[in-house]
Design a protein around this nucleic acid. Structure first.
Lengths: 190, 190
DNA sequence: GGGCGAACTAAGCGCTTGCTTAGCGTGCCC
DNA sequence: GGGCACGCTAAGCAAGCGCTTAGTTCGCCC
């Protein structure tokens, strides 16, 4: 047993949600992508929304982990910020299907599930603010509006989901490098 | 007759689409928000999708107009870029409901309608690229990846739709000023 | 005041939705 | 080798969907 039926259904849900959005996806579509009957979905998962929650939670936690690992990989503040923005953008481009679900289907979650995931989002934002604060304290960064700049940096990575195509001319690494460069420009002492 | 039934239905559609998304919105919901029976929708509009197209087209054209007027308002390249980013962000924050429909419901359009609107999007991107090219030519801007930077500038304005709240602490003008400042930082000669 | 067209609705058609129920086949345990 | 738990499906339920049809109301023009 290499891939369980539960996981196959999750993969199918990722495919379908990313392609058509949560509301436009039917449970029959998910089932048939996983090669099963519609009823099989409910053997392994509670509801269509719980499928979304499982995918969204795993995606948010993976994104948080990426940004925390990048933060830990460099000591010097500017290099650290570059690494964080670079890896966060690269993750979104490489995992654009899960990324789209994470970012665009947040509102489709139940209140409880949305609240739980909102905490992960706050943690991601906090890590970015920490990185800027460190740079300013060390005197190597100049930032006007700190929370606003942190949010803008995240915007670069997240908005790529709106236009990025895996078959397009730009690789995830191209985009990641551009965003890392723009992050330095936005924060450097003039 | 100050507001026609046709316009009341469009307003209701904007409200509903922005709140719940296109697929999750029912024609019955639109009708009842406009104070009419479900069938009345079809007296004034062809289909639910044509309601979306009308809203999306008007929104895209308004956004293009805002960026073109801002471009025409300033002669000096840096001041012009600042004005463009400032006004584009301010428009999205002020018109966040229409903005959300414009940016997030693009995929719900029919192929023909999507193709028509894609042209407006290309025009918006082209205006931003023009502004950067002017600045580089005049020697007052330094830009590595020109199309990439243009896209990143638009990302700042567009991604605000994901988190902006009209009842939050920041005004559209606060956000617009921050983005204009970041645009200068991203492009200035070091 | 009779006729007409435009604005609107009550009712409903055919279909799809998320999810359930009842039951079938297969492999493991004693 | 009988029983049983597990993974799965065929069939279908109640509700809701986009949209249509047939008809009513009402102001306006002659």
């Amino acid at each position: 047993m290499t891939v369980t039926a539960r996981e196959r259904l999750l993969d199918a849900a990722v495919e379908a949600f990313a392609e058509k959005g949560f509301t436009a996806t039917t449970t029959r579509d998910i089932a048939s992508r996983a090669g099963m009957s519609p009823a099989a979905v409910y053997v392994h998962h509670d509801s269509k929304e719980s499928l979304l929650f499982t995918v969204s939670r795993a995606g948010h936690l993976a994104a948080l982990e990426v940004i925390e690992e990048a933060a830990a990989s460099e000591a010097e503040p500017t290099a650290r910020l570059q690494a964080m923005v670079r890896e966060f953008s690269a993750w979104h481009a490489t995992n654009s299907r899960v990324g789209r679900i994470v970012q665009y289907e947040f509102a489709a979650l139940t209140d409880e599930h949305r609240a739980e995931i909102a905490e992960v989002r706050r943690a991601i934002e906090a890590r970015m603010q920490d990185a800027l604060r460190d740079g300013v304290a060390a005197g190597v960064m100049d930032v006007g509006d700190l929370p606003g700049t942190a949010r803008a940096l995240l915007s670069l990575s997240i908005d790529l989901l709106r236009w990025f195509s895996p078959t397009g001319a730009q690789s995830p690494q191209d985009i990641a490098a551009l965003h890392a460069d723009l992050a330095v420009r936005m924060t450097r002492v003039h």
